[in-house]
């Protein structure tokens, strides 16, 4: 069994109890990154530090001291490209993935720029309605484009991990799948996903309870929640692309012209990539 990674806020008292565990540590303060790295590295394996930046990406002061730190930056906006240019040299040397919100149309362009510059990046889904067409364009660029570019998530993850005989959950990209990640807060309350943590829907309390979580029925129901979609008989259950979406946009109003079109194209793209990788496409005659 793969050891579960704990997604946790930075709290020294809490870290003391999480010795030997692999961690994703969240912070919204860029000035604490080195401190967290030093603190966590003593007794834990650091999977990544997740910086939830309250400022635009271009306003973040990237430091060369972050060079060996696995970093994941979430920002709601790209900001001014001019401001980012002087930081590109450092950015290219960092072990970093940058995620921008789907809420701003400019971010779609920002992600293309970052990717073209060789910086691993991606989109995270914000609160506003999704511009499915722009998302589709970005996905096509991420998977089909032959020009050199860094991976764009979650497209790259799905394309790389797609298998015709497996459901695929791109939430791994966001540390949000309970088979690999558990979320906890400073009160040691543990949730199976980020949304449950926010909604105070905890599966257990106390660091010592972590090992037993996978044996709970709620855990089994959570990781197989696709059966609930099938049982509800909602539109997602009848969608051709369910296997890569798993009903994440079940609240969407116009699925047939929105998420269904996007995810169907996404599935085709993932399959195209899969065939290329496994060389199951047409074979060219030999010269």
């Amino acid at each position: 069994m793969i050891e579960q990674i704990l997604v946790t806020p930075y709290n020294e008292e809490l870290l003391e109890k999480l010795k030997q565990k692999t961690l994703v540590v969240k912070t919204d303060d860029q000035d604490k990154i080195q401190l967290i790295h030093r603190g966590v590295s003593k007794h834990n394996k650091l999977h990544a530090i997740q910086l939830n930046s309250p400022i635009a990406l271009s306003s973040i002061t990237f430091k060369k001291e972050w060079k060996n730190i696995p970093l994941c930056v979430y920002s709601s906006e790209f900001g001014g490209f001019k401001n980012l240019i002087p930081k590109l040299d450092i950015l290219n040397k960092l072990n970093i993935r940058i995620f921008l919100s789907s809420d701003l149309k400019e971010n779609f362009t920002g992600i293309r720029i970052l990717s073209s510059l060789g910086i691993a990046c991606g989109l995270f889904f914000g609160d506003r309605p999704i511009d499915w067409e722009s998302l589709n364009d970005l996905m096509h660029h991420a998977i089909y484009s032959q020009t050199n570019h860094a991976p764009i998530e979650p497209f790259s993850y799905v394309a790389s991990n797609y298998d015709t005989s497996e459901y695929i959950d791109y939430n791994f990209v966001y540390f949000n799948n309970a088979t690999r990640y558990l979320h906890l807060n400073e009160k040691e309350q543990i949730a199976l996903c980020y949304e449950d943590l926010i909604n105070r829907n905890f599966i257990s309390t106390g660091v010592e309870s972590i090992e037993s979580i996978i044996h709970k029925q709620e855990y089994e129901y959570h990781i197989n929640s696709r059966y609930d979609v099938m049982l509800s008989m909602n539109e997602c259950a009848f969608c051709p692309a369910f296997r890569i979406c798993l009903g994440k946009f079940s609240e969407e109003d116009d699925k047939q012209n929105g998420c269904q079109v996007f995810f169907s194209d996404f599935l085709d793209a993932a399959e195209h990539f899969y065939k290329r990788k496994n060389n199951t496409g047409n074979k060219l005659w030999q010269l």
Partner: peptide, 13 residues
């Protein structure tokens, strides 16, 4: 088609 997609979604294997 809905039935086809439902059944293939229900059990991918």
């Amino acid at each position: 088609l809905e039935i086809f997609y439902y059944l293939t979604n229900l059990n991918i294997n």
